[in-house]
Simulated assay, not measured.
Amino acid sequence: MKNKYRILKIAITVIILGFLLSFSLKKFSGQKITDKQISVKMNEKTPVYFVDEKDIREIVKKENPSGEVGDLDIPALEKKINNLPAVDSANVYLNLNGKLNLDIKQRVPVFRLNKEGRDFYVDEKGIEFPISKTYSHPCMLVTGNVNKDEYQKLAELVEKIDKDDFSRKYFIGISKDRNGNYNLLTSESNYKVEIGDLDNIDFKVKGFKTFVEKYLVYQDPEKYSRVSVKYQNQIVTTLNPYFKENDSVLQAGNKELAKAPVAAVKKTGAQPKLTENKISSTQAKPKESIKKKTVTKPQKTKKTEQKPTAAKPKKKATVKIE
């Protein structure tokens, strides 16, 4: 009998608790979610403003027009916010007091890429997302046909530049040329720093830093159009042809190039054609001499005229020094 009474008491208690729970849930589901009960938090370390709190509140209202707790589909709302291009992650949950919490982390651009006429941002994970009409984030500008598999290394390069005082002072942009070489754009002058590929970046930047501190500080930066550090253990510079002090140097170099080496290359490269032309011209002369003079021997003239043409290529071959 005692066991029956215990079972009966437990059953009655469960029924009462279930009734109270259903009543509280019904009352809770009919509760309104006011603007004060919506909490939106942005959890990114670097402040960005691609997504506004006002925009999030409007999404909540569209997903739950009635504003009641029972009509709110939390998984669908969370998915809707996560699908925003500038949102990295979103966590939506509801407290027992009816407060709706939305913890959102936005994407932070590492660089802005101009590729094939399109402008978009790339975050540290290498994910593309469009630029905003209302907000522009200050970051490194990259131009050129950059492949998606290079985004990660490019993001690492930009982060290294931002963390280093010297690099942050000198480099304001990155470009990729048609040959696939990367160039760092400088702030002090119009010259580029050619780094080639995205490997051994620390070593290349260190080499350029040494070049600046030990040599470039004593020169006019306008003197150069390019400084290449892509080669191992050497730095190659290209003079700026529009810099006045370089005019005499470039003109002298052009004069030297216009002398013997260029002429020798042209002569040696055109030897077969020249010898053939000379032979054909010598063969034409005996025909004219036959008309004017009655006594001529074409066979002998061919032999005598072919000798100097055969000797000339030997002399020309000795002229080539390169």
Score class of each variant (00 low, 15 high):
V212D: 04
A258E: 15
K176N: 03
L113Y: 03
K320L: 14
L21S: 07
K163F: 11
I127P: 01
G117A: 12
V227H: 04
D220W: 09
G180A: 08
Q219E: 10
G144Y: 01
N183F: 05
F23Y: 09
M1Y: 10
I10N: 06
R168W: 04
G196W: 09
G253D: 09
N246K: 04
K105F: 10
K32L: 14
L94K: 04
I15Q: 01
Q299M: 12
C139S: 06
Y93M: 08
E288L: 05
S175I: 04
P308T: 07
K273T: 07
K259F: 14
K293N: 14
R118S: 10
E213N: 14
V212F: 14
A258M: 15
K266D: 11
V249I: 11
S225C: 10
Q234T: 10
Q232T: 06
H137M: 10
I290Y: 04
D247T: 06
N97I: 06
K273C: 07
A11T: 00
I38W: 02
K307Q: 14
I59A: 04
D247H: 15
A90C: 08
T294D: 12
Y215V: 12
F50G: 01
E188H: 06
T13Q: 14
K176C: 00
I174L: 01
D197F: 09
S29D: 13
K303G: 09
S248H: 12
K255C: 01
I279T: 08
K206N: 15
T34H: 00
Y121M: 02
D164K: 01
S66F: 06
V110G: 00
V295D: 15
D71T: 09
E322W: 11
P221S: 05
T309D: 11
K27Q: 11
K312N: 04
T301L: 11
I321R: 02
I195Y: 01
T301W: 11
N254E: 12
Q234E: 15
M42C: 06
D123V: 03
T46P: 04
G180P: 08
S281F: 02
G117Q: 13
L102V: 05
P85S: 07
Q152M: 12
L184I: 02
D164Q: 14
F208M: 08
K153R: 12
P85L: 07
L8D: 13
D165R: 12
V193E: 01
V193N: 01
V193Q: 00
K133Y: 13
L274M: 13
R107L: 07
P75D: 06
V295G: 09
I16L: 08
L157W: 01
Q106I: 03
V205S: 03
R112T: 01
A86L: 02
M140G: 00
T237K: 15
N3V: 15
T268F: 07
D164N: 10
D55H: 02
K36E: 10
K302E: 09
D103S: 05
P85F: 04
T46L: 15
D199F: 02
R112E: 01
